[in-house]
Amino acid sequence: MSIQHFRVALIPFFAAFCLPVFAHPETLVKVKDAEDQLGARVGYIELDLNSGKILESFRPEERFPMMSTFKVLLCGAVLSRVDAGQEQLGRRIHYSQNDLVEYSPVTEKHLTDGMTVRELCSAAITMSDNTAANLLLTTIGGPKELTAFLHNMGDHVTRLDRWEPELNEAIPNDERDTTMPAAMATTLRKLLTGELLTLASRQQLIDWMEADKVAGPLLRSALPAGWFIADKSGAGERGSRGIIAALGPDGKPSRIVVIYTTGSQATMDERNRQIAEIGASLIKHW
Rank of each mutant, 00 (worst) to 15 (best):
S2L: 14
Q4L: 09
Q4I: 10
F6W: 08
L10F: 09
I11E: 03
I11K: 05
F14C: 09
A15G: 15
P20M: 04
P25T: 11
E26A: 13
T27I: 09
K30H: 07
K30Y: 05
V31D: 01
D33G: 13
A34Y: 06
A34E: 03
D36V: 14
A40E: 05
I45A: 12
I45C: 13
L47G: 03
D48A: 08
L55T: 08
E56V: 08
S57F: 09
R59P: 00
P60N: 09
V72F: 03
L73F: 08
G76V: 05
A77M: 11
L79K: 00
V82I: 11
D83I: 03
G85Q: 10
Q88D: 13
R92G: 06
Y95A: 04
N98L: 15
Y103V: 05
S104V: 04
V106A: 10
H110N: 08
L111W: 09
D113L: 08
V117L: 11
R118K: 11
E119D: 13
E119S: 08
E119N: 08
C121I: 05
A124P: 00
I125W: 00
T126L: 08
T126F: 03
N130L: 01
A133V: 02
N134M: 04
L136V: 08
L137M: 11
T138M: 13
E145C: 12
E145H: 14
A148F: 11
F149P: 01
H151N: 13
V157P: 02
T158F: 07
L160D: 02
D161Y: 04
D161A: 06
R162D: 09
R162Y: 03
R162F: 03
N168D: 07
I171K: 14
D174R: 03
D174W: 02
R176D: 06
R176G: 06
T179F: 00
T179L: 01
T179G: 01
M180V: 14
M180F: 11
M180C: 14
A183M: 10
L188V: 12
L188G: 04
R189N: 11
L191W: 05
L191M: 14
T193V: 15
L196D: 11
L197Y: 05
T198H: 12
S201Q: 06
R202C: 09
E210V: 14
K213W: 06
P217D: 12
L219N: 03
L219H: 03
A222I: 13
L223A: 10
W227Q: 01
W227Y: 07
F228R: 07
F228C: 07
F228Q: 06
F228H: 06
I229Q: 02
I229L: 07
A230Y: 03
D231S: 05
K232S: 00
K232W: 00
S233T: 14
S233V: 03
E237T: 11
S240Q: 07
G242I: 00
I244F: 03
A245V: 05
G248Y: 01
G248C: 02
P249T: 08
D250C: 12
D250Q: 15
K252A: 13
K252W: 09
P253L: 10
I259R: 00
I259Q: 01
T262K: 09
G263L: 06
A266F: 08
D269R: 11
D269Y: 13
E270A: 12
E270K: 13
N272G: 05
G279D: 00
A280W: 11
A280D: 14
L282A: 09
L282W: 02
L282G: 03
I283L: 10
H285Q: 10
